[in-house]
């Protein structure tokens, strides 16, 4: 099954490659390699910084919402965040620009907002989904609240948290090309220039690397999820 899938994938990739070559995309990429390389790095930097920020802020925020003191406020906040996701990412970027102007900072801010919600929500629901009896066992054995968080709640929610990170980064990588529109740079530059100049090969020289980076990012997060989540609570192992 897996083997046939890989063979099919290879054949498709090869066919796409052949078509792309014929369309002059590959020569285009090779010819513009310096641009692709430079913009690709910029692109990944945007993903890394905004995604990283979303992770390091989203998880603590999600944890904070699960603390007993927040019990009442938390549901309202999550509802608010849920409404937040219905806002298209392009609109978020536009709002960010109207707040912070043009450049990398508003781009990163917009991307951070767009990828925050899945992380917060999954951290929150993941921790709340830890069965109460498991927490009772932990308390009954004499664990302190922070020991319960680190040894019981977080490890058991980790798989769900990773799923949130995966969704967040998928949204993030998909939105980064739009960041070009508010001066964030990245591979969007090639795509939008290609569209504006009606140069399909230029556009594809941006679009194909974006697609490859998206697949690679997702693959990397999936690998982290597979290997970092303890075997006992990892349905994939």
């Amino acid at each position: 099954m897996n083997r046939t899938f890989r063979v099919v994938a290879l054949v498709v990739a090869f066919a796409l490659g052949a078509v792309a070559y014929q369309q002059g995309v590959i020569p285009q990429i090779i010819q513009r390699w310096d641009d692709v390389w430079f913009l690709g790095k910029e692109h990944m930097l945007l993903v890394a910084v905004s995604g990283g920020l979303a992770i390091v802020t989203g998880i603590p925020f999600g944890i904070w919402l699960t603390r007993p003191s927040m019990r009442k406020a938390a549901e309202t906040m999550i509802q608010g965040l849920n409404i937040g996701t219905t806002i298209p990412t392009l609109a978020i970027l536009a709002l960010s620009m109207s707040l912070l102007g043009i450049g990398k900072v508003p781009a990163i801010f917009g991307l951070w907002v767009a990828s925050l919600l899945p992380i917060v929500r999954n951290t929150y629901t993941g921790i709340l989904a830890v069965p109460p009896h498991m927490k009772e066992a932990a308390v009954g054995m004499g664990m302190r609240p922070n020991q319960i968080l680190w040894k019981v709640e977080l490890p058991n929610a980790l798989f769900v948290i990773f799923a949130g990170i995966r969704t967040a980064l998928a949204i993030n990588v998909g939105t980064v090309p739009l960041a070009y529109l508010i001066g964030g740079g990245g591979l969007g530059e090639l795509i939008f220039s290609g569209i504006a100049l009606d140069m399909t090969d230029l556009m594809l020289a941006g679009a194909i690397p974006v697609a490859i980076l998206a697949v690679l990012t997702d693959f990397a997060v999936a690998q982290c999820q597979l290997w970092l989540v303890p075997r006992g609570v990892n349905p994939l192992r």
Partner: peptide
């Protein structure tokens, strides 16, 4: 209470083993 609990063995009805630990 924490000291007290560490000196009392406690078995809950739902067993309550931690699935993330061996």
């Amino acid at each position: 209470p924490v000291e007290l609990r560490r000196n009392i063995g406690y078995v809950i009805q739902q067993i309550g083993l931690f699935p993330n630990k061996t």
